[in-house]
Structures are given as structure tokens and as C-alpha cells.
Amino acid sequence: MKIVVTVKLVPDTNAAKRIDPATKRLVRTGLETVLNPFDEYAIEAALQLKEKLGGDTTVTVFTMAPETGKETIRKALAMGADDAVMLSDAGLEGSDVWATSYAMAQALKKTGFDLLIAGGLADDGNTGGVPGALAEYLGVPALTNVRKIEEAGDGKIRAQRETDSGYQVVSGPLPSLITVTMAVGEPRYASLKGIMGAKKKTIVTLMLADLGLDRAVGTDGAKTEVLEISAPKPREKARVVEAADGASGAQAIFDFLREKKLI
């Protein structure tokens, strides 16, 4: 089985970030690039499945990112993925969800897959729109919010979907796309052997010219436009309650909570 994991390279999740008011885009200079944390869970799910299925199951990491992202992609290879495909082209800059998923889908058609696993949400843009759009472009079912893959193989997949009140067991044909939640298991550390072996693994680079697209991507192909950027409203100032003693302080807190219908 060929498993492909789509990953996004995002700015360091802990770093302070700034939006350029002119371009309305995130300023990426000076920020370290890391694997989108949710995508690390997708890699973990893929590696678990590979370990379970054995045989000729392979895990390919797929990303759309500038060439400078290679070092970050190697981390995914060090975790245990077999190879990687990077879609890198200056013409992709400025792509929104629509253009990104269209370009990715065309590249993924070339790469081929039985099971496509995505993290579901990127830490930077937070749209969560790409996996659904990818499934649509690729014409495959999307099983979202998977917390456990029960079975995969022989042209079908059975998985548990997390819901607000529990989980559903769903099944579908292969090829399919799934998005996973953090319940699939903590992403493993890249081992020393994995790291040392990663440099021997192949990273294939695809460019727009390789895809033969019939519609525009990048800024020209974007269907959305960021009109305005604003900081969230600062929180209202906290109310300070002065109390003579512990008992009256507790009473004040109790009254407040009851007024808010929290108790």
C-alpha cells in the first residue's frame, strides 16, 4: 500500500509573529520553519499503519513549500517516512486554499496513493480547508477527524471518527483521504539512526511545469483576498473585588459565578 502524508511547513509555533500590513501576509523572515504540529500526528498514523501492515507498504511525505524547506522535510524522513515529494515553484506564492489544493491535487495525481493522510489543520493559516478540497479535486472520499485506523488494505479502510460525544466507525474504499486527530498517538522522536539514514532518502522536486495545469495558481489563481487585518480586541479589564475577609471574598466569587449561571 502506498501511503502519502501531506504536510505543511509552518513558522515556529512558539515564535512571536507579525503580519506585514502592506501584503497582509505573515512575515516569515527570521522565523524558523517547522513541521506543522498536526501533521506530525498524520506522519505518526502513517508510520503506525506501515508497521502494522509491513510488506511493501511505503510512506511518502508530500509538501508544497519553497526549496529551503528541505531540511524540515528531512525531519519527517528521519521519523521513518520512506521518501518525499516537494512541490516547489515561485509561481505558487500567494496561493489560497483553492489554488493550493488544486495544485497539490494535480501533483498528487502524479505521485499516486492508496491512502492520503492529512493533519487537518495548519498552525499558521488555521483554515482547515485544504484536506476537503483535495478530496474533491482528487475524487476520493474524505474521512475526517480519524482517531484510529482500524483496518486498511484490500481496497478498503475502516476507521474511528472522533465526534463531540464519542466516535463513529466508518468505512470507505481506497483510495481515500483521511484527516487525523491527536488521539492517533504522540508523534515519535526521530531516532539517531533515522536521522543519519534520512540524508540517503529521496526528495523528488516537482515544479509547475511538470504538472500541466489548466488554470492559474499563486496570487492570480486565488479566489479569496484578505481585505483587512486587525488584532483581536483586548480583553476587558478584570474586575477586582476587595473583600474584608476570606468568607466575604468567597461569597463575592460565589455570587459572581451564580450571576453568570456557572453554578
Binding site: E71, A78, A190, S191, A198
Partner: peptide, 8 residues
């Protein structure tokens, strides 16, 4: 490779 070892 050294940076990756550091990170892990």
C-alpha cells in the same frame, strides 16, 4: 544532520 540530532 547535527541540527536534527540537536532538535530531537
Amino acid at each position: 544532520e547535527e541540527r536534527m540530532i540537536r532538535d530531537t
